[in-house]
Design a protein around this nucleic acid. Structure first.
Length: 660
DNA sequence: TTCATCTTAAACAACC
DNA sequence: TGGTTGTTTAAGATGA
């Protein structure tokens, strides 16, 4: 067959530019291990965890935002109470320091006071005071509850001990005592988390020595079941609490927090001006008449209520009368907040435990450090906790003793695949990245993982080579630079160099999507995106198994995002994953993709430190099987930065160019 | 079973 | 001469 003409065709050019060629061949460029090529280190400095929170989960910032709104809501209530002279017998004692608030504002109805207005009216110090005030209130109420709870527990213990004199009940007594003791222990543990959580809830935290609330006599814990008892106690004890005529405000608070009961307190960042569910709580009333979070099975599901309501109208009436804005309702809302927070803490702990288990199962025991979890198999909360930032970086050479490298958990494969078992021999490591896995986002998220763990990257050589090339500002690499990229990005490729380097060369030559371009400094490899896309199935219907695995593996609604990312990555991974850019690449890339600026081949804006703006080059187009005209591909290769095979990616590209 | 794809290995040539 | 780069072929594995 007639293959590509040998590189000697452009030998004259290369000979002329032999001086620059010598510059390219740096002495350190061959070992690869730990070496940083003189080119822009496109992947060396990016941190995968930076984008780990953008998977649709509740981020820390969102949680803080939500908590801030909770505090604002409480502040709103306090303002109203202050303005109307509402007396709160049990809580006003602790309102220190008092918040100076314009009465005109406080007199406004809750619907009139928006979050922005509140923030404008209240200074940060005032807001902080309000939040601290609320915390003190909450702690005081919890303290009372804890005391009662402890008394109850002791009474129960005493009664059980008395009853335990009977021989037949000794076993059961022991169990119950043990259960009580465990409960006490558990309460102590949770209470510690609770205190931490309360401090975290405040955006500014309690000042040292200010607002520090200690509860020495408390059982130091609260569980959801305990809180339910608290609700009943409170509902029984506080019979004569004043019933305000602020049904709307009460409804606002109750529905807002009741929504938290039904689901985690997710906010709605898409809402304008950062207004979240608290301000849009009225929408909860717009739900179908037969549906209400606080109404079910003909009963009021307000905590501790269980009042029978025949229909929704009666329930609404009951809600507005029995659960209006008063101290009891407010306290119950706070307690419900604690319930939700405890559940969140529990979820976080369980997720962290899962993380540790999975890490243990997929890491060698001798692995000296933790790595970020490949793909979004765990919640973002866990992911952020296990982000690489939390661990030291820059480990030396990972151990190279394993014969069967471990494989990170993938969305496209089962979580614990056979390839991760050491005794499975040769494994099919390839993950069909063409279907679902955006390699750029995968690498961005798990950069530290692959960099330090000797894990075979679940991508084909072609995908990796392409990523390496696209990772550079000018989207062209020499073979040696590709080698360096492999060794820099993946610990796995720091061994068996002969094998995979041969494979790299083989792939470069084999696949038409890789085009060898001769320029002044030698041969560089570029990616013909058009050809690369030809290799990829046009849609995600090629593998039902993979699709199924992806659905089950991603979870948390990440499928859609992953699919979109895959679609986006198929053309412009760098544009769709900004963290991929390092300091040198991001700034350059944003402006160098000027499609219309010049028709000069290659990177012509001179932004690349490796290439001169003027250089001659020749493109070696691999022989095309008789299908389509290869000219567009060749043209696109001539200027590697102008490969825009898909329209839906072309617009963002243009938009970025406009911005830059 | 067939086919496509990928990986690995190897041989070979050209070049430095 | 040895190493690098690039091409080509072949065999085997894997999954659809």
């Amino acid at each position: 067959m007639s293959r590509t003409p040998p590189s000697g065709v452009v030998k004259n050019v290369m000979m002329v530019e032999s001086a620059s060629e010598s510059i390219r061949s740096t002495p350190t460029s061959q070992n690869g291990v730990g070496s940083v090529p003189n080119q822009s280190d496109a992947g060396g400095t990016r941190e995968g965890s930076a984008s780990g929170e953008t998977n649709g989960e509740l981020s820390t910032a969102e949680l803080l935002h939500f908590q801030q709104q909770q505090a604002l809501q409480m502040a709103r209530q306090l303002l109203l109470q202050q303005a109307t002279g509402l007396s709160t017998p049990s809580s006003t004692e602790n309102k220190q320091p008092s918040v100076q608030v314009p009465v005109s504002v406080a007199m406004m109805s809750p619907q009139m006071i928006t979050q922005q207005q509140m923030q404008q009216i209240l200074s940060p110090a005032q807001l902080q005071a309000v939040m601290q005030q609320q915390q003190a209130l909450m702690l005081q109420q919890l303290q009372e509850y804890y005391k009662k709870q402890q008394e109850q527990l002791h009474l129960q213990l005493l009664s059980q001990q008395q009853a335990g004199k009977q021989q037949a009940k000794e076993a059961a007594l022991g169990n119950k005592q043990l259960a009580f003791q465990q409960q006490l222990l558990q309460m102590q543990q949770i209470q510690q988390q609770h205190l931490l959580n309360l401090q975290r809830q405040s955006l500014v935290g309690l000042q040292p020595g200010q607002g520090q609330v200690t509860m020495p006599g408390l059982p130091q814990a609260v569980s959801p079941s305990d809180l339910q008892q608290l609700l009943k106690e409170m509902s029984n004890n506080q019979e004569d609490s004043s019933k305000q005529d602020n049904a709307e405000l009460s409804s606002t608070i109750s529905t807002s927090f009741s929504s938290s009961k039904m689901s985690p307190p997710t906010v709605h960042p898409s809402l304008p001006n950062g207004q979240s569910a608290l301000q849009n709580s009225s929408s909860h009333y717009e739900m179908p008449p037969s549906s209400h979070p606080l109404y079910g099975h003909g009963e009021c599901r307000w905590p501790g209520c269980e009042a029978l309501c025949e229909d929704m109208g009666q329930f609404i009436k009951h809600l507005n009368t029995e659960h209006a804005l008063d101290d009891r309702s407010t306290a119950q809302c706070r307690v419900q907040m604690q319930v939700v927070q405890q559940l969140e803490i529990q979820l976080s702990k369980e997720s962290e435990r899962l993380q540790a288990m999975m890490t243990h199962l997929h890491m060698r025991p001798s692995e000296p450090k933790h790595f970020s979890q490949p793909l979004n198999l765990v919640s973002s909360a866990t992911h952020t906790k296990m982000s690489p930032d939390n661990y030291p970086d820059g480990l030396p050479q990972p151990p190279t003793s394993a014969t069967a490298p471990i494989t990170p958990m993938r969305a496209g494969t089962s979580v614990i695949s056979s390839s991760s078992l050491p005794s499975m021999g040769p494994v099919r490591r390839r993950i069909v990245d063409k279907f679902c896995t955006p390699i750029s986002s995968e690498l961005a998220q798990n950069h530290e993982f692959y960099k330090n763990a000797e894990v075979r990257p679940p991508f084909t050589y072609a995908s990796l080579i392409r990523q390496a090339i696209l990772d550079t500002p000018d989207r062209q690499l020499t073979l040696n630079e590709i080698y360096n990229w492999f060794t820099r990005m993946f610990a796995y490729f720091r061994r068996n160099t002969a094998t995979w380097k041969n494979a790299v060369r083989h792939n470069l030559s084999l696949h038409k999507c890789f085009v060898r371009v001769e320029n002044v400094k030698g041969a560089v490899w570029t990616v013909d995106e058009l050809e690369y896309q030809k290799r990829r199935p046009p849609k995600m219907t090629g593998s039902p198994t993979l699709v199924k695995n992806m659905i089950s593996g991603l979870g948390y609604g990440a499928l859609n995002a992953s699919y979109q990312a895959a679609l986006a990555e198929s053309s412009f991974p760098l544009l769709n994953s900004p963290p991929l850019h390092n300091s040198s690449g991001s700034g350059i890339h944003g402006g160098h993709d000027d499609v219309t600026s010049t028709g000069e081949p290659g990177n012509s804006n001179g932004s690349s430190p490796r290439l001169s703006p003027q250089y001659s080059q020749s493109v070696h187009v691999k022989e095309e099987p008789a299908e389509e005209d290869v000219r567009p591909a060749s043209l696109s290769v001539t200027n590697p930065n102008t490969v825009l095979p898909e329209d839906h990616d072309l617009e963002p590209e243009t938009a970025m160019e406009d911005l830059s």
